[in-house]
C-alpha cells in the first residue's frame, strides 16, 4: 500500500499532457453549450401557468408539492423505488468493515452526549414541521426525512443504539413501508377504476399527507441505513445465523 503511494508520487512529478488535453476538451464542451444557450427562445408551452390553473384541484397549495405528489406523482413513485433499491443494494453488499459509526465510548464527551439529547427532539420536531408545512410552502417528505435521518445519525455517532433490531422483520417493514403505502394507493386508485394515482376528488389532500408521512419515516431510515450500513448489518447477520 505504501509502496503504491510512493510510486504514485514519483509519477506525478513529471509533466502530464493528459490533464491538459482533458481540460481543453471539457472547456470546449462547456463553451459549445454556453454559446448555444445564447439563442434562447421564448417557451411555446408555459407549464407554470398550467400548474397555477390546476393548483386548486391538486389538494395542496404549494406548487412544488403539487407537482411532486399529484401532477408528476408517478416520477416520485419511481424515485422512492430507486431509494428502496439503493438501500437493498447496500444490504446485498454486506460490507463488514464499514467506517465505524460506533465510536469508542471513551471519546464521546459529556457535552456531546448532552447536546445530542437536547438536539434530537428539536430536530424531530423540525422534521415534523417540514412535513406538515410542505402542503403550502417549501418543505415535504424528502426534506423532513433528511432532517430526521440527520438526527438519528447524530444519535448513532454519540454511541446510542436504535431499537430497530429486535423483531427481525421490523426493519424490513419500516424500510419499505413508505414505498408499500405509495404502491397500495396507486393500486387502489387503479382498482377503483381511475387512472394510476388519480386521487378521488376531495381526498387528495389527506392522501398526499398520509403518503408523505409514511415516506418520511422510510426515507429517514433508508438514509440512515445507506449511510451507516451497520443497523442493517446486525439484523441481517442475525437473521442468517437464525436460519
Amino acid at each position: 500500500m505504501e509502496k503504491q503511494i510512493r510510486v504514485n508520487q514519483e509519477k506525478q512529478k513529471g509533466f502530464k499532457i493528459k490533464p491538459l488535453f482533458l481540460a481543453l476538451l471539457c472547456l470546449t464542451m462547456g463553451v459549445c453549450i454556453g454559446l448555444s444557450l445564447q439563442t434562447t427562445q421564448v417557451q411555446p408551452v408555459d407549464l407554470a401557468v398550467i400548474v397555477q390553473n390546476e393548483l386548486h384541484n391538486s389538494g395542496v397549495t404549494n406548487p412544488v408539492t403539487a407537482v411532486l405528489l399529484n401532477f408528476r406523482s408517478y416520477d416520485t413513485l419511481l424515485e422512492v423505488g430507486v431509494l428502496v433499491l439503493a438501500a437493498f443494494s447496500v444490504i446485498s453488499l454486506r460490507t463488514v468493515q464499514l467506517p465505524r459509526l460506533e465510536p469508542d465510548k471513551d471519546h464521546i464527551g459529556s457535552v456531546q452526549k448532552c447536546l445530542v439529547l437536547l438536539l434530537t427532539p428539536v430536530m424531530i420536531v423540525i422534521g415534523g414541521y417540514l412535513l406538515w408545512v410542505g402542503s403550502e410552502s417549501p418543505g415535504g417528505a424528502f426534506q423532513a426525512g433528511s432532517v430526521i435521518a440527520a438526527a438519528l445519525l447524530l444519535l448513532l455517532l454519540s454511541g446510542y443504539q436504535l431499537p430497530l433490531q429486535h423483531p427481525k422483520w421490523l426493519l424490513r417493514i419500516l424500510l419499505t413501508f413508505g414505498f408499500c403505502v405509495f404502491l397500495s394507493v396507486a393500486m387502489g386508485t387503479v382498482l377503483m377504476g381511475r387512472s394510476l394515482i388519480e386521487y378521488p376528488s376531495g381526498w387528495s389532500g389527506i392522501l398526499i399527507l398520509i403518503i408523505e408521512a409514511t415516506l418520511t419515516i422510510s426515507i429517514a431510515l433508508i438514509l440512515v441505513a445507506v449511510v451507516s450500513g451497520r443497523v442493517i448489518e446486525n439484523t441481517e447477520c442475525r437473521r442468517q445465523n437464525a436460519e
Binding site: E54, F71, D75, S195, L196, Y199
Partner: peptide
C-alpha cells in the same frame, strides 16, 4: 395510452 393521475400531458406523464 394512459395518462397517469388523470392529468393530460404536458402537465402529467403519459404511458
Amino acid at each position: 395510452r394512459h395518462d397517469v393521475g388523470g392529468w393530460v400531458a404536458p402537465l402529467g406523464i403519459a404511458l
